[in-house]
């Protein structure tokens, strides 16, 4: 006899029994112990057919190939730069991937990126020992100038961006700021000082309320109140649920 112990989208804690019996299947964030399926991290349960998985609510960024991230240059190496990705491991940007220009042997690398610079970059490779290669070759990858950097929970990034970037573009249009959110939980905001603050507060609000249903509508109202501008409706959307 299989029995589900929780409801879909419940918050569960490590060790909590999600289901008993062999009918359900454990997926990400869960494990089977005897005939029980238990959670192994804090998060929201998602039930897809017979598959149980957990959507984490917090955690450290785990680097993945292909992610666009915002990194800070922390060291200049013999033939490249070392950058901090806001995670447990640092990444290396090699000379070849840094720019399309030809860099002379023995050239001053600080000419391209100085220690402390923030860069929008892409992860090209992650090894099993978590050695990370990043590249600046691609559309939109560049050094960041001006604005402000804020750190958010990496697991909230998909909510801040929204479906097809709907949430972030709402913030952009209503505050007239340039906003970029890296997958590693580092965000960059640039605009008028006052609207920068509104954009930052909006992101903080998404971060703390992302697990409560109806986020898009609440954010729309919040931004309208703060900026005094009306946000036009995009095509009607039915899914405003969490995650």
């Amino acid at each position: 006899m299989s029995e589900l112990k929780i409801k879909n989208k419940d918050v569960v804690v490590p060790g909590e029994i999600l289901a008993t019996g062999m009918e359900f299947l454990p997926s990400y964030g869960t494990y089977r112990e005897g005939d029980k399926i238990q959670a192994n991290r804090l998060g929201l349960v998602q039930l897809e057919g017979k598959v149980l998985k957990i959507i984490p609510l917090s955690g450290t960024y785990i680097p993945k190939r292909g992610d666009t991230v915002i990194a800070q240059v922390e060291e200049i190496l013999m033939s490249g730069w070392r950058a901090d990705l806001n995670c447990a491991y640092s990444a290396v940007l090699g000379l070849k991937d840094a720019t399309s220009e030809f860099i002379q042997k023995g050239a001053d690398l600080t000419h391209y990126f100085q220690i402390g610079d923030y860069i929008v970059t892409k992860i090209v490779n992650v090894t099993t020992q978590n050695l990370i290669d990043i590249s600046m070759k691609g559309p939109g990858l560049k050094r960041i100038r001006g604005g402000r950097i804020i750190k958010v929970d990496p697991y909230k990034v998909p909510r801040i961006i929204g479906k097809q970037g709907s949430m972030v573009s709402m913030i952009k249009t209503s505050t007239d700021c340039r906003v970029m959110v890296g997958q590693n939980g580092v965000a960059w905001i640039q605009g008028e000082p006052k609207s920068e603050i509104i954009a930052e507060e909006a992101i903080r609000k998404i971060e703390s309320e992302s697990h409560i249903a109806g986020l898009t509508d609440r954010m729309k109202k919040y931004l309208e109140d703060k900026t005094g501008k009306k946000i036009e409706d995009r095509e009607p959307r039915s899914d405003t649920n969490a995650v």
Partner: peptide, 11 residues
């Protein structure tokens, strides 16, 4: 530790 999102099989 649970709040930090660390993978742990139980509290």
């Amino acid at each position: 530790l649970a709040d930090a999102g660390i993978v742990m099989k139980d509290l």
